[in-house]
Nucleic acid binder design. Sequence first.
DNA 1: GGGGCGATTGTTATCGCTCACATTTGGCCG
DNA 2: CGGCCAAATGTGAGCGATAACAATCGCCCC
Lengths: 329, 329
Amino acid sequence: MADVAKLAGVSHQTVSRVVNGSAHVRPETRRRVVAAMGELDYRPNPAARALVTGRSRTLGVVSFDTTLYGPASTLYAIEQAAHAAGYFITIVSLTMLDRVSVLGAVERLRVQGVDGVLVITPQEGAADALVNLPAGVPVVAVEAGRPNSVPLVAVDQFAGAASATRLLLDLGHPTVWHVAGPSDFLEAQQREDGWRSTLEKAGAEIPRMLTGDWSPRSGYRAGLQLAANPKVSAVFVANDQMALGVLRALNERGRDIPREVSVVGFDDIPEAQYFTPPLTTVRQDFGEVGRSSLRMLLELMQRSGHPPQRVTIAPELVVRRSTARPPGA
Amino acid sequence: MADVAKLAGVSHQTVSRVVNGSAHVRPETRRRVVAAMGELDYRPNPAARALVTGRSRTLGVVSFDTTLYGPASTLYAIEQAAHAAGYFITIVSLTMLDRVSVLGAVERLRVQGVDGVLVITPQEGAADALVNLPAGVPVVAVEAGRPNSVPLVAVDQFAGAASATRLLLDLGHPTVWHVAGPSDFLEAQQREDGWRSTLEKAGAEIPRMLTGDWSPRSGYRAGLQLAANPKVSAVFVANDQMALGVLRALNERGRDIPREVSVVGFDDIPEAQYFTPPLTTVRQDFGEVGRSSLRMLLELMQRSGHPPQRVTIAPELVVRRSTARPPGA
DNA sequence: GGGGCGATTGTTATCGCTCACATTTGGCCG
DNA sequence: CGGCCAAATGTGAGCGATAACAATCGCCCC
């Protein structure tokens, strides 16, 4: 920077002003400085800048398995939005979502000097970790969180599950079975709640619930059980991957979908449309989740001390060919 | 840091030594300093450290659409490995992989002060961007690259495609159709080469090749064309998602898989095992790709001026139920 | 023509740390 | 018991930027 100043015949402060686009620099001076910067191939040192300003223009993202479609898409949208806002994203991915790992990750990011943190934590313990977070860095929870915790951006899981269940009921199915996600995932709980309370409201019998771990394999196992029960005519599965497994199991056991059994998934992964048959599912707009959460974090960073709020994003039921009226109807 | 030094009754330099785990500090002194740090809840400032040492302990990853299974898994493995090595990962994801965006992304990371960069760039223009990269930051290419470019870690696409094609030939199919990926992806080209040269070597007729864009939708379209041709008995599809589309199209047109038509995919995404029928495919070990590339980058950072090298990871053919002997056999 | 004022530009201190070197300490040996 | 050497600790100088304030410059107006 000193070299640039010398070459342009100005002080280093003026160079700084040009770099930061400050007003109060004569166009002619600015031109000279810009030319000097070009000639010397000068780039400001972010460490020096961070040292004096106290901010790094870097945001941290803590996420569970970024191999999964949901977190991956959310992360992607976050990165795009951050880029547009002039921020970098540094990511910490967790293999386990217990309280300790989440707190550790946030702390690690904080030490590293990020200006804010987004936490993509669908799991219960992880959400708890954010309840009494030591202050110091603005944090926004994404996809799931506790009330009275940090601000939250999430899709309305309850509504999504309810609409899926209602669809099946409306088609004439006497009741709807459910393959839930792991019970320690808040989203799994909320989807279960939406399913259960819709059945209750409709006065339908509530069948025994099956539980999987989000994987196609666990869906397959659940599907085998469902296939064994001739009374099963409609299934709401807590995510598309498990729904894929259910589809396979039913198919193997010779149950025709949707003529004999209707299946609804959740997420709308890109593959869902090409399952056999194309899967009726509940779409979550992960892109919007990512963008909203970034927007909220940026706001929180501006005027901190801002009261926790929550943004809810509506899911959308996508009807395809895995659902139909029940056999008798 | 000054406060810690005062509280512990030592100089700031001694505190620095303790923080950096340097030798030459008496255990008793170290204990006092550690206690003081704990009491004051002290954390070293990374910006200050980066300013003086010139390194940030941060690595950059430039990647194409991190929503796809391949890049997502690779990224995940990279992050895990980086974490273990004490590095942070900052990520830039690209929507387009042309020369300019890739160079821009690398430059952006460089300006931001990363110690090294990994570029996950399956596309041609992107790979070209790395050929005459301005020096300054160590760069390793992941998944695809040019000869005479930066060091590269990738799965042997040619071998994978060859093994898939050979499997089908060995089952007795007279020849093998191919649904390729976009022609500007190096991986698509290499898979095509593997397919073509295996057919040539076997003296089999080389059917007209179809091309998709990696999406299930494009696979579906290709599948419809294949279904219309009764001579098609074996198809090698360049990725699992397109294979899913092919499966659907064939199924819709009443072609039984694998009795009438055999299908092989590429990647082995987690869902592949639960397709209808479970997909025979070529597994790429993305985790290993991620770990190897990080290892290579770290090496490159140590002794720079190190000659470009390449690490090749062997793919693995996973035989499931979408392949069988041809109808006549 | 001098005063005044806003627009430019320069000066100095400082951010929190590590590096290089100077200094002190402590133990062992002759 | 003094001297010597290595181990332990301290001192001062930057790293490369921004912030706060000071100093000029130029122009307008009475």
